[in-house]
Design a protein around this nucleic acid. Structure first.
Length: 483
RNA sequence: GGUUCCUUGGUCAAAUCGGUUAAGAUAUCACCCUUUCACGGUGAUGAUGCGGGUUCGAAUCCCGCAGGAAUCUCCA
């Protein structure tokens, strides 16, 4: 019988969810769920200097928005509570002392400012290893502050297996006697992580590649206690592209780097999750790219993970987001996009559902809504050259000639819906033996004042409404006549 | 600087055990459709970092090099 798979996501509460972190959480979740296992949320708040209020709620809200649902964690229940490390302080102390007894750790009473590193790039002295027992007892009796350090082997090497990278070996002499228990009684990441992963029964550790080189230290801890090793999976980082074309780990200078930044820009949470899933993982057995969470779970497997870094690409995210827009019902999209339109004049507020339907296939994110409709709120000043169109043989002169007739025709039109307008114009076009493209182009430019528009001439007329449309057309004609 | 990891089109990426015309997507461009644009359709451009080796045959295995990244906190 194989052991039930248990993975975890262990963020520190900084009030910020980096895309790379979200992806790590997603993969851990997908793997657990694909194996019918458990996904645990654990808060690693052992750095008291970095404490941020409400950050735990922020993490929970973000996971909820991304549709990642922990089975256990703070507020989620579970048999291994507490899931917040600051509430587990006593546990770490107990295990640190146990490790001292086992001979794999020792007390150090040095001043924190004069640590044991020597030189810019490491170098290390281990003098505190040799403190006589009576000196240690004396310090402890006096209540002097101390840290507990891990006693690394001085020779040999430590090897562990990583699912993505195979065996990774590091010489033990490279390993410093890292601090396990800090002066304030809190554990360090490297210690608390191991203790909790073991106590919480984590079977697969899925985390960022930045931990590859510290994992041998963890392995030595597991071995020190005689504990079974979990399976390690170190994910390649998410990169951002710099202006000079080089890449580096995704950071602020690349624009948005957090899940919430992207949501604010108008990317849908499910589209972000979908895109991020594909950024370093590939489903192998299908070329499908648009996935629901259930489909991701169904297709997920570790051998689809990529071991090389992936560059975050707004173009692809925008395409995926656009696919989600197109898959939506018109009214659903209209409701969703409405807040991004801002204040609207009455005529547009009334026809918003129709306007939204036109925008639906044209946007990569909701943040583009306002720019796309600005010409409907205030008619732009435009040059007569805009009337020029080769395919339909349109010129400003031609427009000046046609507009009076078209305006008269529209003034006689009472049914101001797209279909009725189209039919009326079609009839006039046929009667006069004109080209449809010519008439529609002239009308569209005259009413929009912009070369590229969402929707065609009659659609824009309907959305603007009878009154506003006629006003605009007359104004545009005036301009042509006064040139 | 030491250590560790990584390297297939601009980007994401596929390619059982070494045999493919080196998939697919996006982006870009062109054409078709069309009431402009978009959507949709068709097509085009574009890649195995470099140098050796093993082999009938290398993206794939080996060696060297180069480039990139991460790490070297009483941060996580």
């Amino acid at each position: 019988m194989t052991k039930r798979v248990r993975t975890r996501f262990a963020p520190s509460p900084t009030g910020y969810m980096h895309i790379g972190n979200l992806r790590t959480a997603l993969y851990a979740y997908l793997f657990a769920k694909s194996q019918h296992g458990d996904f645990i949320l654990r808060i690693e708040d052992t750095d008291q200097a970095r404490y941020v209020a409400d950050a735990v709620d922020f993490i929970k809200n973000t996971l909820a928005a991304a549709n990642i649902v922990p089975d256990e964690g703070p507020g989620f229940g579970g048999d291994y509570a507490p899931y917040v490390q600051s509430e587990r302080k006593a546990i770490y102390k107990e295990y640190a002392e146990k490790l001292v007894e086992l001979g794999h750790a020792y007390y150090c009473f040095c001043d924190p400012d004069e640590n044991h590193s020597t030189g810019e790039f490491g170098g290390y002295d281990r003098t505190c290893r040799d403190l006589p027992q009576e000196v240690i007892d004396e310090h402890l009796k006096n209540g002097d502050p101390y840290v507990i350090r891990q006693k690394m082997p001085l020779s040999g090497e430590t090897t562990y297996f990583d699912v993505l990278h195979g065996n990774i070996t590091i010489k033990n002499e490279e390993l410093e006697d890292q601090v396990l228990l800090k002066r304030d009684g809190m554990p360090t990441y490297n210690f608390a992580n191991v203790i909790d992963d073991h106590l919480m029964g984590i079977t697969h550790i899925i985390r960022g590649a930045e931990f590859i080189t510290s994992t041998p230290k963890h392995v030595l801890l597991y071995q020190g206690y005689g504990w079974e090793l979990p399976v390690f999976i170190h994910l390649a980082p998410v990169m951002g592209k710099n202006e000079d074309g080089s890449v580096s780990k995704l950071s602020k200078r690349h624009g948005a780097t957090s899940f919430n930044d992207l949501v604010e820009m108008g990317y849908l949470p499910q589209a972000i999750t979908n895109y991020v899933a594909l950024l370093g993982w590939n489903p192998k057995t299908t070329n499908q790219e648009i996935f629901t969470m259930d489909e991701l779970i169904e297709h997920f497997s570790l051998d689809g993970l990529s071991k090389s870094p992936a560059v975050f690409d707004y173009d692809k995210l925008g395409w995926i987001n656009g696919e989600y827009f197109k898959a939506m019902a018109d009214d659903e999209f209209a409701t969703l996009a409405r807040p991004y339109a801002g204040d609207l004049p009455d005529n547009l507020a009334q026809t918003w559902p129709k306007l939204a339907a036109l925008l639906k296939t044209r946007l990569t994110r909701l943040g583009e809504v306002r720019d796309n409709i600005a010409f409907l709120i205030d008619q732009p000043e435009f040059d007569a050259d805009l009337y020029v169109n080769k395919r339909n043989k349109v010129t400003p002169e031609k427009a000046k000639e046609l507009l009076p007739d078209l305006i008269a025709l529209l003034e006689a039109q009472s049914d101001w819906t797209n279909d009725a307008l189209y039919a009326a114009l079609q009839e006039a076009i046929d009667a006069r033996g004109l080209k449809k493209g010519l008439v529609m182009w002239v009308l569209r430019i005259a009413v929009a004042g912009q070369k590229v528009t969402p929707g065609g001439a009659t659609e824009l007329l309907e959305i603007l409404g009878r009154e506003k449309s006629l006003l605009r057309l007359k104004k545009s004609l005036d301009k042509l006549e006064n040139m």
